[in-house]
Structure formats: C-alpha cells, structure tokens
Design a protein around this nucleic acid. Structure first.
Lengths: 230, 230
DNA sequence: GTTTCGATCAAACGATTGTTTGAAACATAC
DNA sequence: GTATGTTTCAAACAATCGTTTGATCGAAAC
C-alpha cells in the first residue's frame, strides 16, 4: 500500500474507476442482493475509495440504476433486432412460436456469453430484479422494456390466434416468468437432491431444455374457463 | 401511552406476543424483503417492545426461521396427504401428470385461502424465498421439503416414463419454478402493460391458467439433445 | 511557475442496525 | 403476606449504514 503511493498502481491496465465500481456492484448485487450489499463491500472489491461511489454516481440508489442502464439497452436492442430479422426473413409467413421464443433466448444467451456486455452475471441480476423488483427500478425498468415486451407480445399474438386476449396474456406472463427465473440460476431441486443432473447455472443447457417446455405450454389447447374454477 | 401503563391494554383480544411478532414479520418480509425489514418495523407493527423479538426468538435470523417453521409443516403435510390420496384412489392406474400437478396446486390454494395457515401472504413469502433463498434457510428449507419434492418427483417419473432422467429433472425444475414464481404474485407484464387482464395476485386465477401450461410443458415430446446445442 | 479543476483520499458525520441490560410489572405458588 | 419465575419496558450498547467534508494529489491550461 504505502510503497505505491508515490508511483502508479502496479496493475497493468487499470480500468476506469466508475467502471470498476459498476463491475463490483453488479457482481455483489447478484451474490447478496441490493440491501445486503454495502458501499464498503463494493468499494473494497473495486479497490477504490469509499467516497468514489458518491462522487461518481451520487448515491447507492443511483449506482443501482447505473448498473442497469449500462447493460439493458444493448440487450433489448439485440433482442428486438433479432425479432425484426426473424419477421423480415419470414416474409408473408407468420413466425412460429418456437422461433419467436428462440429469438428471445438467443439474445439472452448471446449476452450471457459476452463478458463485455455483462455476461451471465448481468443476466442473473436482471432475472432476479424482475422477480423481486426494487423500488428504485419500478420506473426505470418498464421504460427500458416497454418496446421489447410489446413487440414479442404482438408477435406471439399472431402466432397464437386461437387464444383469447386474457389467456394469451396469462401464458406470456408464465413464459417470461419461466425464462427470467431460469436464467436467475436458482435450482430448486438442488436444494433437495444433492446429486442431480440439472446445472441451472449453464445458460446454454437451460435454453436447450426450456424452449420446448415453454413452446409446449404456449401452444397448449385453450383452457375451458369455468370448468372447475370460480 | 402513559395513561395505559397501569391498566390492561384496551384492545379486546390481544394475541400472544410471539404470535403477533410472527404475523408482523411475515407480512413485512413479503413486503420489503428480509434485509430491508428492521426489528423496529416489526415490533412497531406488532405493537410490542423492541426487545421482545430477541427475548422470544433470540435473534432476527431465528425469527426468520420461526416464521417458516410455523407454516411449512402444515403445508407440506397437506400436499403429501393429497398426493397419497390421489395415488390411493388411482389403484393400479398411474396418476396423470395433470392430476399430480393439480394436487400440488390445490394444496397451495387451500393454504392461500386459509388465514390461519398463513394465507396468501405466506405462500408469497415461500415463493420469494425459493427464488431468492436467504442464507439462514439454506439448511432449514431443504429439510422441510425433501420428502415433498421426492414424492412428487417419483410420481411424475412414473407418469412420464418416456423421459430420461436428465430431461425429467429439467422439466420438474421448470415446473416447480413456474409454480413458485407464479404464486409470488409478481406480474412481469404489469410492469409494461398498465391495463392488462392478468391479476397475478389471485391464486385461483393463477392455478386455472398455470396448470394446463405446466402440464403441456411436462408432457411435451422429448428434446433431441445435441440437435443444435453442445 | 502559477492557476485551475476533476479525482482521490482519510476521516468523520448523523442515522440506523441488531442486540443487550437492569429495573419494573406481572402472574403464580407457597 | 413473601417468594419465585416470566414477561415487558425504556434506555443504551457497539457496530455498521450511506453520505459528506476538506485536504491532497495530478495533470492539463495559461
């Protein structure tokens, strides 16, 4: 410590301070959650001064938003671009449910494989935030995602014309929940069956098995409402 | 305050102090999460002294465990009892996937309707804890749920003999994730589409539309592994 | 060289965290 | 009555929280 005060830090290429904070916060928020992650944990991991967070971002809440805004736009743009390409390539044909879901999964997979876009860490953070939204993001998240969800909903509506609006929305709700939850990396079975074959941390494996599951759920025959309930 | 120090508290039937603490904590943990819920919030809501939590439970962590142990056993016993009844009634016949999933959902629904067993509040807390498990419960939860998950996995294995073990575990993983997530009451679409027909807070509605979705996902044709991935 | 301005630093801020204390109030038993 | 054991209470505990301060550093501007 003291021997390097007068000289440049030894580490080869030291990233921007703000970037190092974002990276550290991103990882810690995934690991411990927002409330359980303290400023001192973040600055210690980022190897920056405690005051650096407030200097560069203003507050802890603003940092939380900063973590998202850095990653979210590239991800949504990628997913939307992929969907547009799919619809363009389909010509007059209506894209299948399978292809629409795959487009979304491919975007998430591509980001999860690219550390420069946040990698699997950010995908997990995003998943967890959807499941348990922090008050700070109640306005930020919808703004970023409005177009994305709207486009996919419209595409799925065309692919599933036999479903009424209510049932379609329910199924899209389940589908997105399953996808986000799956990428969150939580494996319920792991809690009970120590030796299990499911590695929920591997996004590629998740996608391989999850897409058919979701597509099957989406394309199931309509529910005869009022059959047993209500 | 001071005028009532010498007399009994005015409120008609005042519940046991420990119970009032559990009720308040249960609700607050659902609303704000564990870390964001302070002892003072809990004791204030329960209208008990701050020290009462430590006196009756020992610590905040122990209270968190207490909140679960009070509710978990009745729920798991109900689900297991329902499953046993189903298998008994089926005789030599293997219960269908639909009936197995319905048995689980019915147990969750029954608890969610009964305030004495925690009602919808506890079901939501349970869901959220599965999705984002707190370190304190990493040992407690599996112990309570081991038998439950084991039984349902065995039943589903018999109902889906055409699936190999790996694919079966993946699908059960997805199915349980979807169910727990659904009962958590988070509605992703609500974030984007203000006027939507999906009321994710109504467990009965969730079950009506979710069961067919999950059953369809579970009974889908097996994935041809190695088709596009790995 | 002097000035200027953004970045970093150790240190401290008031507020809040979970927890502990010791006395007071309570109920029950003798 | 006294004695005993449990529960409640206001108050304080040390620790940590997010944030702010004012000095110091470093490099470009003049």
């Amino acid at each position: 410590m003291s021997e390097a005060t007068h000289a440049k830090v030894a580490d080869a290429r030291q990233l921007d301070t703000a970037t190092r904070i974002l990276d550290a916060a991103e990882a810690l928020f995934v690991e411990h959650g927002f409330e359980a992650t303290s400023m001192r944990m973040i600055t210690q991991r980022a190897e920056v001064n405690l005051a650096a967070v407030n200097y560069h971002f203003g507050s802890k809440d603003a940092l939380f938003q900063g973590v998202f805004t850095r990653r979210l736009t590239p991800l949504t743009q990628l997913a939307i671009a992929n969907l547009e390409k799919l619809e363009r390539d389909s010509g007059n044909q209506v894209p299948s449910v399978d292809s629409i879901i795959s487009v979304f999964m491919d975007a998430a997979l591509e980001v999860s494989r690219d550390p420069k876009r946040g990698g699997v860490i950010f995908v997990r953070l995003l998943s967890r935030t959807f499941i348990e939204p922090h008050p700070v993001l109640r306005e930020t998240l919808p703004r970023h995602y409005a177009e994305l969800v709207g486009r996919f909903t419209a595409s799925l509506a065309r692919a599933l014309p036999h479903l009424n609006e209510v049932e379609l929305q329910w199924r899209i709700h389940f589908a997105f929940s399953a996808m986000f939850n799956a990428f969150a990396g939580n494996n319920i079975l792991r809690l009970f069956i120590p030796k299990n074959a499911v590695n929920a941390k591997d996004p590629q494996m998740v996608a391989t098995y999850l897409v058919p599951f979701i597509v099957s759920g989406l394309t199931a025959p309509p529910v005869n409402v009022g059959r047993s309930a209500m």
